[in-house]
Design a protein around this nucleic acid. Structure first.
Length: 496
RNA sequence: GGUCUUGUGGCCGAGUGGCUAGGCAGAGCUCUGCAAAAGCUUCCACAGCGGUUCGAAUCCGCUCGAGACCUCCA
C-alpha cells in the first residue's frame, strides 16, 4: 500500500492516512444544494474528492464514498431566518420544490459526468432522511444539548462546551470571540445564544416543504442532514470528511458538535478542505456574480473567454494546481492548459500503441531505465503528498518525453528492457486515465479519417506533388490535427 | 476589527534549508522539399528589508501587497 499523507484540517498537519478498517475506507463529501446550476468552483471541490476516491481505489482500498444531495433546509441569507433556497426557487418558477430538486440534480449529474467524475457509492438526499433527522434531534434534546423554542429546536452550544465540547476547534475559533462578534440577527429571541443553530425549524403556514414532527410541522436544519447520513452509512466515526473551504465554518463545526453530542464520539478522523477557484484573484461565487457555468465554458460564451474549452482541458487545468491552493481562472491559463492537455493525450495515444520489440543486439541502458522509474515515482510521490496532482502531472510529462523518444526511434524498447517497458505502459495509462481521470476526448471516426488521408498524403509525397501535400495538411489542420512526418513513418496527432 | 492563508521567472503553477519541478510562451540546433510534430540545448525566478545558519526562495521578525472565513456559498 502506498504511504498516503493527507492534510488534516483538524491538526493542521499532513498525517499518514491509516483507515479504521483497512482495506475499507469511509468517505463523506458535502454535496450541492440543488437550487441552481453548479458552477466551476463547485466542480473543483468534487473533482478533488474524485481524485481521492480514484487514488484510494487505485492503491487497493475499498472505498465507500457518500456524497449527499441537499434538497431541503438550506436557507437563503442570514442565520436561521432566511427562506429555504429550494422553496424560494419553487415559488419563483411556480414549480413543486421537488421539480426544482430534480432539475438541478440532473444538471449536477450531467456536469460531473462531462468532467469524467465517478459517481459516489451512495448519494443520499436530505428529504430521504427526515426520520433520522427527527430521531437525532430527539436524542440531542434528551441529552440536554438541544432545546425546543416556539416550534423550532436549537443546538445549545454553551451547554455542549460546558460538557467538554470544543465548538470552534476545526475552524480555529474561540467561542468567546464568536459570541462578542456575532451580529444581532432577527430571531435571536428564540435562541438562548446567538450562535445556537437550528436542528429543526418550524414551518410558517406558507412554507412549502414540511413534515410532521414532535414539535409540530417543520423541516430539518441544514447541518443536521450531513451528520445523520454520514452516521447512517459510514458509522459514528469514519475516515474522511471533505468539502469546500467555505464550509469549514460554520457547517462542519456544527456537524462535529451535533455528531459528538448525539453519538458521544469524534465523527471524523481526517477533515479535508479544498480551496476556492478564483477569478481575477477573487473567489468565484454565485453571490459575487463572477461564476462560470460549465455550459458557458464549453460554448465559449462567457464574456471573459475568447474561445470554448473542453471538459478535459478544464479538468487538466484544475489538476495542475494542488487542491489546497487557490486557483485563478483565466482565458490565458486555460489556453496554456489546452496545449498541455493535448501534449499529454498525444503521449497517451502513442504509449498505448507502442509494442516491445526484442533485439538481442541492444543492451539495457540504465540511464533510460532510471528515467522511467523516476518519472513513475514522481507521480506516486506527488499523489502521496496530499494529492499533489501538479507534481504527478510533472512526472507524467517526463514520461511523455521518454514515450516520444521511443516512438521516434531515438530510444529502442530493448534499451529499457521488457519489464521497464511494460511498467511504463501500464503506469502511464493507469495514472493518466484511472487516477487523474484524463481521457482522450471522443472524436468520432477520427481514426478512419486520419488513416485514409494519411495514405493520400504518402502517395502525393512520393510523387513529389507538394501542392497536394500541403492541401492534405490543410485538411488535418482544419480538423484540429497535425501530421507527424518521421524518418520511417507517418502518423497524426492532436494539434497542441 | 478578529482568525487564517498567501506573494515564485513573460504567463499559469509545484517545491525542499545546500541537489532539474512541470506546462505555455521565447531563442538556437537536429530532422524536412518547405513545414509541422518530436528530440536536444537555452534565456527569464523566488515582493521588500533585516535576522538565524557554513549555506535560505525554503526558518524567524518587520514592511508592503493579495485573498479567505467571521452571514448563504464548493
Amino acid at each position: 500500500m502506498q504511504p498516503l499523507k493527507i492534510y488534516n484540517t483538524l491538526s493542521r498537519e499532513k498525517e499518514l492516512f491509516t483507515p479504521i478498517n483497512a482495506p475499507h475506507v469511509g468517505m463523506y463529501v458535502c454535496g450541492p444544494t440543488v437550487y441552481n446550476y453548479v458552477h466551476l468552483g463547485n466542480v473543483r471541490t468534487f473533482l478533488t474528492f474524485d481524485i481521492l476516491n480514484r487514488y484510494l481505489t487505485h492503491i487497493g482500498y475499498k472505498v465507500r464514498y457518500v456524497r449527499n444531495i441537499t434538497d431541503v433546509g438550506h436557507l437563503v441569507g442570514d442565520g436561521d431566518e432566511g427562506e429555504d433556497k429550494i422553496g424560494k426557487m419553487a415559488k419563483l418558477e411556480k414549480l413543486e420544490p421537488m421539480e426544482i430538486v430534480q432539475r438541478y440534480t440532473n444538471d449536477f449529474h450531467k456536469v460531473l459526468q462531462q468532467f469524467n467524475l465517478l459517481p459516489p457509492s451512495i448519494e443520499p438526499s436530505a428529504t430521504g432522511h427526515i426520520v433520522e433527522q427527527i430521531e437525532t434531534t430527539k436524542s440531542l434534546i434528551n441529552k440536554g444539548l438541544a432545546y425546543e423554542s416556539q416550534g423550532s429546536v436549537y443546538f445549545d452550544i454553551a451547554r455542549y462546551n460546558a460538557e467538554g465540547g470544543n465548538y470552534g476547534k476545526l475552524s480555529g475559533r474561540v467561542l468567546e470571540d464568536l459570541l462578542t462578534e456575532t451580529r444581532d440577527l432577527d430571531g435571536v429571541g428564540e435562541k438562548r445564544n446567538p450562535l445556537d443553530f437550528a436542528l429543526w425549524k418550524k414551518a410558517a403556514p406558507e412554507h412549502l416543504m414540511r413534515w410532521t414532527s414532535p414539535w409540530g410541522d417543520g423541516f430539518p436544519g441544514w447541518h443536521l442532514e450531513c451528520t445523520c447520513m454520514s452516521t447512517k452509512y459510514l458509522g459514528d466515526t469514519f475516515d474522511i470528511h471533505g468539502g469546500g473551504m467555505d464550509l469549514k465554518f460554520p457547517h462542519h463545526e456544527c456537524e462535529i458538535a451535533q455528531a459528538k453530542g448525539a453519538n458521544g464520539v469524534e465523527p471524523v478522523r481526517y477533515w479535508m478542505h479544498s480551496n476556492m477557484l478564483t477569478v481575477n484573484g477573487q473567489k468565484m461565487s454565485k453571490s459575487l456574480g463572477n461564476s462560470f457555468l460549465p455550459a458557458e465554458l464549453f460554448a465559449g460564451s462567457h464574456p471573459l473567454l475568447e474561445q470554448a474549452f473542453s471538459p478535459m482541458t478544464v479538468r487538466f487545468f484544475m489538476l495542475q494546481s494542488q487542491y489546497r491552493s487557490t486557483l485563478d481562472f483565466s482565458n490565458d491559463a486555460l489556453k496554456a492548459a489546452q496545449k498541455g492537455y493535448k501534449r499529454l493525450i498525444n503521449g497517451l495515444r502513442i504509449v498505448k500503441k507502442l509494442e516491445f520489440i526484442t533485439d538481442e543486439a541492444i543492451e539495457i541502458d540504465q540511464k533510460h531505465v532510471l528515467e522511467v522509474e523516476k518519472g513513475i515515482q514522481t507521480c506516486y510521490d506527488g499523489l502521496n503528498d496530499d494529492l499533489n496532482t501538479a507534481v504527478a502531472i510533472a512526472g507524467l510529462f517526463n514520461l511523455v518525453k521518454k514515450i516520444n523518444q521511443l516512438y521516434m526511434g531515438q530510444v529502442q524498447p530493448s534499451q529499457l528492457g521488457e519489464s521497464t517497458f511494460n511498467l511504463l505502459k501500464e503506469q502511464f495509462v493507469a495514472i493518466t486515465e484511472n487516477v487523474l481521470g484524463l481521457l482522450e476526448e471522443p472524436n468520432e471516426n477520427i481514426e478512419a479519417f486520419a488513416k485514409g488521408m494519411l495514405s493520400l498524403y504518402r502517395e502525393y509525397k512520393e510523387a513529389k506533388q507538394y501542392d497536394k501535400v500541403d492541401e492534405v495538411r490543410g485538411y488535418f489542420k482544419a480538423n484540429g490535427l497535425v501530421i507527424k512526418d518521421m524518418k520511417t513513418k507517418i502518423d497524426w496527432a492532436y494539434e497542441e
